[in-house]
Design a protein around this nucleic acid. Structure first.
Length: 563
RNA sequence: UACCCGGUGGUGUAAUCGGUAACACUACGGAUUUUGAUUCCGUCAUUCUAGGUUCAAGUCCUAGCCGGGUAACCA
C-alpha cells in the first residue's frame, strides 16, 4: 500500500507555500533569502536555516538570495562575509549572482524614512538611550510619549537631513516611527528607525554616520528583492507586526514573514556571541576548532556537507522549541562516511606484539578490502611481519567472560591475516606491558582453506617496521552538560566546558598506505572510527582529527555492566 | 503579573474535509558478520489536563495547566 516514492510529508512552511501556490498568491513564485549578519562564523544552527531557505527554493523552482544584513558596522567585518560565503558554498548551495547587502539599500531606506516623516509617521527624537528606555515602559506598564513626538514635519525633515549630514553627536538623536506608546507589543512603541553611529562600515566606509535598525531594514530589503516567504526564527515573531507596519505604511510590496524554531543541539551552544567568547578567551583554537559547532569547525573535523544536509532534513521544521540530541548529528555523519570512507588500519595506543614462530625478516602482503560498502573501491595490500602493533584496548590480561579480543593464553584473528595466540606477557619494571609474545597458526591465513576456523574476535594491527607515525586528535563534546546553560546561581556556561574535549595522541601507528596522505581526506580506521586529515597535517608529520567514533556496543555493554 | 507563540513515544517530525496515531533516530532484544562496525528483524504512546459537540476528536468548542519569547540607539 505504501508508495515507493511517496513524497515526504510537508512541513508547515511547505504547506503555506503550496497553499499560496494554489491560491496564486505570488503567481507561483518562491523567493527566499538567507540573511546572515556578518558578525561571526556560521554554525550548525545557520545550516538549518540555509538548508531550509535554499532547499525550499530548489524544491519549488524558486530562488534564494544571499543577503548580508549589515546595518551595524560596529560588529561586522569583511572576514565574516568571506567565511559565510565559503561555508554556504561548501554546504553545496548557490546564490547565483544574487550576493546582496542591506547596505546596498541605504539610499532607498533613507528615502523611505523621509517618506514616513512626510506622512507624519516618523519623528526625530532627542531622548537619550536611557530616557528612551524609561519612556518605553515595561512589559506590564504602558509607555509614554516622547516630548519630541509632535514636531512639525518640516522640522523633522530638517533635523533628519542634518543627522545624515553629521551635525549631531553619536547617540544624541534618533529617528523613530510614530506608532503607539501604549501598545502591548513593545516593538510598536515608537521603535527607533535610525541611530547616529560614526563607525566605518566594511562596505560603505565613512559614507554614512546614520544607520538603519534591523526592523527598518529587513522587511524593506525583502520587499526590494521581491521575496515571497521571509523565513526567520521564533524570536522575531513579536517583530512581525512591525515588519508589516513598515511595508504597509510605505505602501510597498509586502512579503510574508514566517517564523520557525531555531536549532538547539544537546551538549552545544549556538550563540555567535558566546562562540566568539570561546575563541577570544582561548578555550578553543579558533572559529574552526574541530570542537566548535561552526560549519568551519565541523568541516575541519571531517563532517561532510551531505551529512549536515541529511541532518537538517532529519530534524524537521516546526514552531516547537525543541532540543535535538547530539547523537542524531553524529549518526548522520557516520551514515555518510560509512558509505564513502576508505578503510585502513590504525593503532592509536600501540602495544608491541611479537610472533615468535613467524620467520624473522619475512614480509607478506595481505589483501585488504578498501570499502565493503563500495566494491569499486577495490583492494590494497598491507604488509605483515613478525613484529606488530595492536591497540591497548584489544588486550586484557584479565578479561571478562564476554571479552573476545586478545587475552593471555587466548586466540584472536588478526584482520586479513592469521589467527594468533598470546603465549606470554613481558612487562617493564613498573609493571606496564612491554610486549606480547604470541604464536600464529600458519594455516589460518585469510583466504586460505584453514581460515574458516572460528575464533571469537578479530582485531586490527600494523606491521612495526612498515608503520607510519601520526598524531591523532580525539575530540569529545565541548560541554559536559546536555544543557550547557544549566549552571548554579552566579556561574557561567563556561563552567560546563569539558576539560577533556581534546586528547592528543602522538605515537599512533598507521598502515603504510597512509604515508604522505594529503589533508582533507577521511578514512575509517577499522573498528575505531572516522578520521580526517587535518589542515595542518604535513607529509612528515601527519595529523588526524577523529570525526566520530564507530558505534561501540562493547564499550556500551562494559560501562553498563560496571554500574 | 502585559502581549505573542507553543504542547503528539526516550528524541524529533507527521497524520488530507473530524475516520485504525505514522516515519526517522535513540534505547533495548535477536539474526548475520574476518570491523563488537555495517546490514536485517523485533519491542517501546492515557496525543498536557478536565469537560463538551459528534456514530467517531490529536484535529472542533470551553476552561485550566505547563513551557518558551519579548522591556538594545543588536540582529
Amino acid at each position: 500500500m505504501t508508495e515507493p516514492d511517496a513524497p515526504r510529508k510537508l512541513n508547515f512552511i511547505e504547506q503555506i507555500i503550496e497553499q499560496d501556490n494554489e491560491a496564486g498568491k505570488w503567481d507561483g513564485r518562491v523567493q527566499t533569502r538567507f540573511p546572515p549578519e556578518p558578525n561571526g562564523y556560521l554554525h550548525i544552527g545557520h545550516a538549518k536555516s540555509i538548508c531550509l531557505n535554499f532547499g525550499l527554493a530548489e524544491k519549488y523552482n524558486g530562488r534564494c538570495n544571499l543577503r548580508f544584513d549589515d546595518t551595524n558596522p560596529a560588529k561586522e567585518d569583511q572576514e565574516y562575509v568571506d567565511s559565510i560565503k565559503a561555508d554556504i558554498r561548501w554546504l553545496g548551495f548557490d546564490w547565483g549572482d544574487r550576493e546582496l547587502f542591506a547596505s546596498d539599500y541605504f539610499d532607498q531606506l533613507y528615502a523611505w524614512a523621509v517618506q514616513l516623516i512626510q506622512a507624519g509617521q516618523a519623528y526625530v527624537c532627542e531622548l537619550t538611550a536611557e530616557q528612551t528606555r524609561e519612556y518605553r515602559g515595561t512589559l506590564t506598564e504602558p509607555g509614554k510619549n516622547s516630548p519630541f513626538r509632535d514636531r512639525p514635519v518640516e522640522e523633522n525633515l530638517d533635523l533628519f537631513q542634518r543627522m545624515k549630514a553629521g551635525e549631531f553627536a553619536d547617540g544624541s538623536r534618533t529617528l523613530r516611527a510614530k506608532i503607539e506608546m501604549t501598545h502591548p507589543n513593545l516593538n510598536l512603541r515608537d521603535p527607533v528607525m535610525y541611530r547616529i553611529l560614526r563607525v566605518v562600515h566594511h562596505r560603505t566606509g565613512e559614507q554614512w554616520c546614520i544607520y538603519p535598525m534591523y526592523d527598518f531594514t529587513h522587511g524593506q530589503s525583502d520587499s526590494l528583492e521581491r521575496v515571497t516567504h521571509s523565513i526567520c526564527t521564533l524570536e522575531f515573531e513579536n517583530h512581525r507586526p512591525l515588519y508589516d507596519w513598515y511595508c504597509d505604511s510605505l505602501d510597498i510590496y509586502h512579503p510574508q514573514q514566517i517564523e520557525f524554531a531555531r536549532l538547539n543541539l544537546s551538549f552545544t551552544i549556538t550563540s555567535k556571541r558566546k562562540l566568539l567568547e570561546l575563541v577570544t578567551s582561548g578555550h578553543v583554537r579558533g572559529w574552526d576548532d574541530p570542537r566548535m559547532p561552526t560549519i568551519s569547525g565541523m568541516r575541519r573535523r571531517g563532517y561532510t556537507p551531505e551529512s549536515i544536509r541529511q541532518f537538517c532534513e532529519r530534524i524537521g521544521v516546526a514552531k516547537f522549541h525543541s532540543v535535538i540530541d547530539m547523537t542524531v548529528l553524529e549518526n548522520s555523519v557516520r551514515e555518510h562516511l560509512n558509505q564513502v570512507a576508505p578503510r585502513v588500519m590504525g593503532v592509536l595506543r600501540p602495544i608491541k606484539l611479537v610472533i615468535d614462530n613467524y620467520p624473522e625478516g619475512q614480509v607478506e602482503e595481505m589483501v585488504a578490502v578498501n570499502n565493503p560498502e563500495d566494491e569499486s573501491a577495490g583492494t590494497r595490500q598491507v604488509p605483515f611481519s613478525r613484529v606488530l602493533y595492536i591497540d591497548q584496548e584489544d588486550f586484557r590480561e584479565e578479561a571478562p567472560r564476554k571479552y573476545f579480543r586478545l587475552k593471555r593464553g587466548g586466540e584472536v584473528r588478526l584482520r586479513y591475516a592469521y589467527i594468533i595466540k598470546c603465549e606470554d606477557v613481558i612487562k617493564n619494571e613498573d609493571g606496564s606491558i612491554r610486549e606480547l609474545r604470541c604464536s600464529y597458526d600458519p594455516d589460518s591465513k585469510s583466504g586460505m582453506p584453514g581460515a574458516g576456523r572460528k575464533v571469537k574476535g578479530t582485531i586490527h594491527w600494523v606491521s612495526a617496521e612498515h608503520a607510519v607515525d601520526a598524531e591523532v586528535r580525539l575530540y569529545d563534546r565541548l560541554f559536559v552538560k546536555e544543557n550547557p546553560y544549566d549552571v548554579a546561581e552566579g556561574e557561567d556556561y563556561k563552567v560546563n566546558l569539558n576539560p577533556a574535549s581534546l586528547e592528543t595522541l602522538s605515537a599512533c601507528k598507521l598502515e603504510p598506505a597512509l604515508a604522505g596522505v594529503g589533508s582533507g581526506r577521511t578514512f575509517q580506521f577499522e573498528r575505531v572510527g572516522y578520521f580526517h586529515v587535518d589542515a595542518d597535517s604535513r607529509a612528515e608529520h601527519l595529523i588526524f582529527n577523529r570525526t566520530v567514533s564507530l558505534r561501540d556496543s562493547w564499550a556500551k555493554f562494559e560501562t553498563r555492566s560496571k554500574k
